[in-house]
Design a protein around this nucleic acid. Structure first.
Lengths: 67, 67
DNA sequence: TTGTGACTTCAAGTCCGTT
DNA sequence: CAACGGACTTGAAGTCACA
């Protein structure tokens, strides 16, 4: 499993753990809702600045999303 | 300090720890020589697939480069 | 509430070189 | 050996309408 799929699974898992919809997550991370959808399906290859915003919104270290 | 600067410092530190030139690092990570130079100077915002290749070459978890 | 195709803008990433 | 510039191609960022 590559890093894009690991990110996808971690995002969905951690978001649901918070009880957030994709829309609420998107708002908190300041990222478009449909982009979150793409990321959770492993359909994008984001830059580290995007991943950093996601990690901040989820309140986890970046490594928790990618390792 | 943002994630790009943290990556820059970690890359240079870990590469030098291995005793590699930028060119040798580039070869091992299958990334262009000039791009490594850019990354170590914090001048680029790489995708996670690139960071993954860098981490693999350095034999460290991705989190060690970004957290 | 989420998935998806389509789209534009701009940066990621490569390759040539010189300092 | 590393910094840096210019020119280039590819692909990410960001958004929308609609299923």
């Amino acid at each position: 499993m590559d890093v894009i799929d690991r990110l996808a699974r971690n995002l969905r898992r951690l978001r649901q753990l918070k009880g957030w919809s994709q829309e609420e997550f998107a708002f908190r991370a300041e990222i478009h809702r449909t982009y979150i959808s793409d990321l959770e399906r492993g359909a994008r290859n984001p830059t580290i600045t995007v991943v950093s915003r996601l990690a901040t919104a989820l309140q986890v270290p970046i490594g928790d999303l990618l390792d």
